[in-house]
Design a protein around this nucleic acid. Structure first.
Ligand SMILES: [Mn+2]
Ligand SMILES: [Mn+2]
Ligand SMILES: [Mn+2]
Ligand SMILES: [Mn+2]
Lengths: 225, 225
DNA sequence: AATTAGACTTTGATTAATCAAAGTTTATTT
DNA sequence: AAATAAACTTTGATTAATCAAAGTCTAATT
């Protein structure tokens, strides 16, 4: 049975591989995600390769094998279903749930997870708007469009928030930047690195590009579901 | 922060110390409970002493300190509340929940536990009939009377089942040996090591002393609540 | 009192995960 | 083409938890 450490590595490698066009994930990225030194990442990845979960090309990066991908998907499913449970059923704040799920995901069995999924009514997205993989390991593709890609006058709907930190999520909630919220780009200044948006029907907000990049959207009219 | 291993040791030492009149728990008992070799138990216990969770007298046994007792109680609370959740909310079989809770207890935070307790309506006993410690670390005393202590003609009510194994719990449920069930002792043969009991109003059952000892009861009339 | 059985402790080794620091490779500047 | 910087890998050490096997104590039993 894989350790919690291995489960964390495979989950993060999966998420990063989705965000990378080549599918390769660098040691530096892994070290950053898992908060370890680069040497530790290298050593661990060699161990993952020996167990058949990844293919590792020194100084190129790492790629999940079929079995590694399966395990990573299963962890992502656990994580996101647990986050949903913590918000929907236990009413925790969405800023707190990531860290809690980070631990619980390693302790919950497939059997309990299945019961939990049923209890929750088979949700498709977690509280941050991220898609929940099915038990078969399928995951709907997410939009690759952030607010940063929108131009003045465009309207969009928030799909997900790509920052799990307490402070950012607190800021997002306070300003109604939630999955489903309607956004309109009012003003853009690339030089000043600032963007004015309308959130909902009457509230306005200024954000910089770093923040805009974290708001994943689909443009209004596209992909309504 | 204590590791899962330490948490397991302290929880089991607590449970065993309640079942022992001297309060001392032997290395052999610890090794048995935790499924490790005696040498491992000795080594671990010395580590627990260095951290201030137990007092250890070589070849005598081990006793929890105040802080060790507190941690052990907290683990017992987590374990039993989680078992309750798994049965009440997710509808798992009571034979499966012990092993699941054994893992989850290390991953759930005090904050989530508090929400869970509230969600469950602050239950006082787990599905096996064992008392759930309060968040202050208080636990109602359990009966020390088993079916083995009853004589012919006596009636009693089952308080708890003291065997967490799948097979035993399956047997118990099939025969309606559940917390709250009414039992009457019909026949007793110490030599043959057998006991006939009436369960509920019409079903009869023969059990040996080893099984009778696992059925903790309070005699009818006593401690009704 | 000597023997023996059982419980316990000690010792030496192993595995997983980690870090710091030293060494190597690769890509980018000059 | 050299020099440099950044990213990466290697090495040697550490910690927690464990086991097998050898050694020691204690409490019966003879
Ligand atoms: Mn995790
Ligand atoms: Mn999430
Ligand atoms: Mn446990
Ligand atoms: Mn129980």
């Amino acid at each position: 049975m894989p350790s919690s450490t291995v489960e964390n590595y495979l989950k993060e490698i999966l998420v990063e591989s989705i965000h990378s066009e080549s599918g390769l994930v660098s040691m530096g990225k892994i070290a950053e995600c898992l908060q370890v030194t680069p040497g530790t990442a290298t050593t661990m990845v060699k161990g993952l390769e020996k167990k058949g979960w990844v293919n590792y090309r020194p100084r190129q990066g790492v790629k999940l094998t079929t079995s590694g991908r399966k395990l990573g998907m299963s962890m992502l499913r656990r994580h996101r279903l647990l986050e949903t449970f913590l918000v929907e059923t236990l009413d925790l704040d969405w800023g707190e749930i990531h860290d809690e799920a980070e631990e619980l995901e390693h302790a919950i069995s497939e059997k309990v997870l299945e019961k939990l999924d049923e209890f929750l009514g088979r949700p498709t997205h977690d509280p941050h708007g991220d898609p929940i993989p099915t038990s078969k390991g399928n995951m709907p593709e997410a939009s690759d469009l952030s607010l940063l890609d929108c131009t003045v006058g465009q309207t969009a709907k928030i799909e997900s928030i790509q920052d799990q930190s307490r402070e950012f999520l607190k800021f997002a909630r306070k300003n109604k930047l939630l999955p489903g919220s309607k956004i309109e780009v009012i003003q853009l200044d690339r030089i000043a690195d600032t963007m004015q948006i309308k959130v909902g029907l009457k509230s306005f907000l200024n954000i910089g590009s770093k923040t805009a990049e974290k708001i994943v959207v689909h443009r209004s009219g596209e992909m309504e579901q």
